[in-house]
Design a protein around this nucleic acid. Structure first.
Lengths: 127, 127
DNA sequence: ATTTTAGTACGAAACAAGTCGTAAAAATGA
DNA sequence: TCATTTTTACGACTTGTTTCGTACTAAAAT
């Protein structure tokens, strides 16, 4: 049970977490390079954000050498769940079924994806 | 095609929109009374928020009499879609299927709800 | 050795969200 | 009519987020 379950990352923090989740670990430089592909902000901005995230407990870091190495300190899954929960509450009147159906209905899904979902659904119905 | 499609309501604005979507229309007083059940903020706070929402185009109002009457100016569905899209992008690497499966897997769904989802899924597969 | 490069730390500015106090105007009612 | 209530308008304060400039330090290159 994580101590930081209830910590809600901001949008910028989420962008950084995405990188850390993908790379497993990264330096500020690496995170910044990755973000630069889509976003235009200075290096020290990314640095500052990651420092704040460290203070908040969103990331951990190894500062034994000069160049610090960061890792996410909250899991992708728990963060996804947290945001789904918030969204279900604030936009779907508490019904996650409604969210599922809206998400299912308003985007294209491949044949395989639909089969994946079907499999999960079968499992849930069995229980 | 709404002019305000890309306008992203804040958390407080979403609370107010919820009330307006439920009631179809409401005065500041009514919205405030409703919010007061769960939240503790002053009347003028709600008023100010709704004034800002009006400036942004999130709500429209009839100010022909002293007590203004507000209505939502963006639909619940389009707002849901907007937030789903944002979340898919920021937390699910662009895959709405992943969102569907996470939402499906991490909350309880009743027998009927599962059947509803099944029906929708069948429909999508047919196409 | 000393210059250049790459990194961290820190403070401050700019902005946005949410909060509320106070003033003014309209409606109500005594 | 005149006081009370209800409502809008507006400005200011607080808190949090994002941004970046500048200073300092360690490592690397010359």
């Amino acid at each position: 049970m994580s101590t930081f379950k209830n910590l809600k990352p901001t949008d910028s923090e989420l962008e950084i977490l995405q990188v850390l989740w993908n790379k497993e670990q990264a330096t500020v430089r690496e995170v910044h390079e990755t973000l630069s592909e889509h976003k235009d902000a200075g290096y020290t901005t990314t640095l500052k954000l990651m420092q704040i995230m460290f203070e908040k407990g969103l990331v951990k870091r190894d500062d034994s050498s000069k160049t610090h190495i960061y890792k996410a300190n909250i899991s992708k899954e728990s963060t996804q769940k947290q945001f789904i929960g918030k969204m279900v509450h604030s936009l779907f009147g508490g019904s996650s079924t409604e969210l599922v159906m809206q998400a299912l209905g308003s985007a294209q899904h491949s044949e395989e994806d639909l089969n994946e979902i079907q499999k999960l659904l079968d499992n849930l119905k069995k229980k």
